[in-house]
Amino acid sequence: MARRVKPPRGRSTRSGTALPETSLVFNVVAKDERTPGVFRFVIQAPQIARKARPGQFVILRLNEHGERIPLTIAHHDEVRGTLTLFVQAVGKTSIEMSRLKSGQGILDIAGPLGRPTEIERFGTVVLVGGGFGIAALWPIARELTAAGNRTIALLGARSKNLLLLQEEIQAASSEVRVATNDGSAGTRGLVTDLLEQVIREESPVHRVIAIGPVVMMKAVCELTRASSIPTRVSLNPIMIDGTGMCGACRVMVDGKMRFACVDGPEFDGHLVDFPGLENRLRGYLPEERKSREQFTRVEECRLEEATPPRS
């Protein structure tokens, strides 16, 4: 059957009639590439900035045709009314977002979503971050340190130039250690090597918070399980609405089905079914490749022919 391509519908509530005055406008006020392929965005969203807490995320949609994607709030500035997000350009939407310029707008941002990180005086807290997970750790480190904890941040990356926010984390925590696969910064190896070391040196460690790729979080949990250190992980399953309606973000925790957007995104890492999560994150690979290929193809044509962009 021939595919029907219809003009975009929906969103009549914003087209046609004049925008109601209270309509939220989400403008990009600053953007730069922090490490290769990871972009920092500062976005005007005063109402969300006012309520954001460490550990929370937003769901955004770039345009009428867009997918809704979740992104962690790495920083919020109540005074300026801005949110800072770090986006790793991995697929269609994140690549498209990485091409936004300062001054351009984002159609929809809903948030702050998810339950905030518990901020208490625990004692010694080890924060383990990898990839864009480091961005998520930044506000957590800041608040835990301010709450009187001794915070030890362990950051991992493949190579020095891929290490995100090192200075900021340094400023936000009591101590920082770095591991890179190639040894170009810190020690050569994995963050879990650093964690083993810290657990040996510091006793007791009262809590571990790990945010990063699933393999990393899983390895962290295996390590801390042996010494029964309470460990929180922030899960990133596929999401659509982010309000507990669709069930796409379900994960098994302690044998029970939980919804990461309303019950999480943080859970007790020792109870999370990581293989199940990994499997579900693989769910859309073929389609995402298709979407990305088509997008980059269109982009290339556009550059060659200088055709007007799709509205």
Binding site: V5, E67, I240, M245, C246, G247, Y284, E287, E288
Partner: peptide
């Protein structure tokens, strides 16, 4: 989820729309 993908996010018009 199934209906939201199709009705709200237009998944049946993928890849014109981005939700698969």
């Amino acid at each position: 989820e199934f209906l939201t993908r199709v009705n709200l996010m237009h998944a049946w018009e993928f890849p014109e729309f981005d939700t698969p």
